[in-house]
Amino acid sequence: MGNRFIHSISLGAVLFAVWLVLSGHYTLLITTLGVISCAVVVSIMQRMDLIDQEGHPIHLTWRAFTYIPWLIIEIIKANIDVLKLILAPSLPVTPTLLRVKASQTSDLGQVIYANSITLTPGTISVDVANGEILVHALTRSGAEDLMGGEMDRRVTRMVGEDK
């Protein structure tokens, strides 16, 4: 119950922050209307039973701050590799399909892992089933990097399931 209350407050705060960014008008009347509309959305989400750890994962916030910079650096490195591949005259691609194990137990963890794989150019997740992810990789070496499992370990650590 208390957990749900914290989620509702945090969701309302995020919604209101987005509202403030998008609005650009800060008179008393309009801001009040903004607060009311955010409260209505939160109450509708409460009635639809959508407020939970999965829909609004505030428990990941702090650990995400260490994961996201790492992910951005990985994305830049992978981007440079793929750029070189495309610009090489002989087009040395070696497309590979492989299955990697997703060691996260929760759906949320697996979604984060699959999305991280897809966001990194050179690897695309094609299917998620039974704790495994089917991945299409642009090169054999990219596939082998992924099989090393560093991203898997980092995602597992981020969602707090590494015990």
Partner: peptide
């Protein structure tokens, strides 16, 4: 690039970097 899946990698460059 030769097929749909590999083209998706190229499209994802423009979406990320």
């Amino acid at each position: 690039l030769p097929d749909v899946y590999t083209r998706m990698h190229a499209a994802s460059i423009t979406d990320t970097l």
